[in-house]
């Protein structure tokens, strides 16, 4: 029995993925304005609605106003949802209904090149969404300048993480119908477990332990202090955890999609 080797399916070189990224960029450019508004509207509504509404009730949190506290959580969450949704919906369509990958696989691109291009693209959209909110929040005086610039690489890394994780879901899901489970059973609980909208110390101890294992927690631990102009603790741990969450699911999705698409 001859097998497609995993090695041959991995990214072939350091620049092939860029052709895939640029294809997606060209497609996005045609709908950029609508896409930007769509990506920013939801997190901005959450930020301002919760920030002003709840902020009045809860008062100060961890030594700052609630809305200042919330900014970092909303930026990380929007990077998460932006990368996840781009991957489970748009990428799945390119693999499935639009046959975009089928055309790509007829060229000298490998499956790994395609996946890397897709993940990098979804991370780019996450960076764009996170940066957009950061800029608006800074304009309103809710983010510290210039330390918020340190959040940008963390936002991009968050995008990579959730694009890779969503790629595993894409490689397993038979149809769109399954994505809602990922959204409701994984992504939404993570928002509440990882301290996006309230401090993690409000949770029972067991939940705090779980949260420490989740990627969004590490994103928020990097992004929130940058937004508040505070020093970041355990930078290496957070970046390391996020890198593992970016790389391992990526490799897993290459293996899974190889079995799904090329057998």
């Amino acid at each position: 029995m001859m097998r497609m080797t995993y090695g041959a399916a991995m990214p072939a070189n350091a620049r092939n993925w860029l052709a895939v990224w640029r294809r997606n960029y060209l497609a996005w450019r045609k709908v950029a304005l609508a896409s930007l508004l769509g990506n920013l509207a939801d997190p901005m509504t959450n930020l301002l609605g919760l920030g002003f509404g709840l902020g009045l009730i809860v008062g100060r949190v961890n030594g700052t106003s609630y809305i200042d506290f919330l900014v970092g959580g909303m930026v990380a969450t929007s990077a998460m949802t932006s990368a996840s949704f781009e991957t489970i919906y748009a990428t799945f369509a390119r693999m499935h209904t639009q046959r975009t990958w089928e055309a790509m696989l007829c060229t000298q691109l490998t499956l790994g090149d395609i996946l890397l291009g897709e993940v990098a693209w979804a991370a780019s959209k996450a960076l764009l969404a996170g940066t957009g909110i950061t800029i608006v929040a800074a304009g309103l005086g809710y983010a510290a300048w210039p330390s918020m610039l340190y959040a940008l690489p963390a936002i991009a890394l968050t995008g990579f993480v959730f694009a890779s994780l969503a790629m595993v879901i894409v490689s397993l899901a038979p149809s769109y119908d399954y994505f809602v489970f990922y959204q409701t059973l994984v992504l939404t609980p993570m928002v509440f477990l990882c301290g996006a909208v309230f401090p993690i110390t409000q949770l029972p101890a067991a939940f705090q332990l779980v949260a420490a294992l989740l990627p969004l927690e590490h994103s928020i631990e990097l992004i929130r202090p940058a937004m508040l102009g505070r020093p970041v603790g355990s930078v290496g741990t957070h970046i390391g955890a996020l890198c593992i969450y970016a790389v391992v699911p990526f490799l897993l999705s290459v293996a899974l999609l190889l079995r799904r698409l090329m057998r």
Binding site: R22, A27, T100, E102, A103, T107, Q108, L109
Partner: peptide
């Protein structure tokens, strides 16, 4: 790298122009 493929089902980029389709595909060949 030395093969051209005409697949059974069209998998062109419907939202792209004719020229953009060729441009994007050429990039896939570096």
């Amino acid at each position: 790298a030395g093969v051209g493929v005409v697949p059974q089902f069209d998998n062109l980029e419907n939202e792209f122009t004719v020229r953009e389709n060729l441009l994007v595909f050429g990039r896939y060949f570096s």
